[in-house]
Design a protein around this nucleic acid. Sequence first.
DNA 1: CTCTAAATAGAAATCATTTCTATTTATACT
DNA 2: AGTATAAATAGAAATGATTTCTATTTAGAG
Lengths: 138, 138
Amino acid sequence: MESYLQNLKDNCLKITPRRKAVIDIFVSNGSRMGPYDVYGKLKKRLSTIGLPTVYRILSELKDIGILVQSISEDRQLRYSLCTLPDVHHHHFTCRKCSKIEEVEFCNFKGVSRFIEKKFNAKVEAHQVQIEGLCSECK
Amino acid sequence: MESYLQNLKDNCLKITPRRKAVIDIFVSNGSRMGPYDVYGKLKKRLSTIGLPTVYRILSELKDIGILVQSISEDRQLRYSLCTLPDVHHHHFTCRKCSKIEEVEFCNFKGVSRFIEKKFNAKVEAHQVQIEGLCSECK
DNA sequence: CTCTAAATAGAAATCATTTCTATTTATACT
DNA sequence: AGTATAAATAGAAATGATTTCTATTTAGAG
């Protein structure tokens, strides 16, 4: 938790009860959540909290690398704690419980070479979304 | 073009001027487009066309495998012709001109095995979005 | 040509997300 | 500890992509 707060300071973001609560929800919950999920959990602790505040905080935490943003099947925002902020990695999402695992492995080079050769193109980025069932939901 | 119309028939969808026009726009254009892009192009040929009609037709063409649906960075719908309907493949999108190339190559098994072993999970699906610059925009 | 279910136009609704503005608060500095 | 100030927030309102609704039109079978 301390390192998250330090991260906020390092990025000139004040440590407010709202921000601490959002981080805490992700730390204690661990799964992938949308703004409305987070809002629902926050309401229990802080009765006066606005949805726009949740959206803003989630976006800020993404910007400084505490959360990862992803897009769900229904094209809506999802966030999850990023435990590997500086390493290139992908995400595995459980289709049943929405838990997210960080996949510190990427064999994308082959595809990249294939594309650059076949289409004479320049590959700049890639994003992989992997889905399935986690050990508990299997 | 004939095979597209046959595909419509096979799926009990009537061959209407609107549907033909939408397919034609993709065939002659080739790039990835959103509903509003398609709507704009349709307006030139058919003055009375509604945006809801465009959304519906795009969704229908996706359902029968003529178009591929993808989600762009801005979380909006994008469609492109699917020339490899039955083969597992991915898509490469040019960041400059939005042209889309179908990548008939996938070395995903390694990642899949890694995940199943490390997390004791079951991988069911994956989706890869690759971006860069095409040969012309390079 | 006629009939019928499917397709469509246009208006309206939906709803996630963002913007705006007045008020409150964290924190740097006395 | 008290104060000043920029940052953060609540709540209302706006935005805008997408979907739904309904009356009208049309493709295609017979």
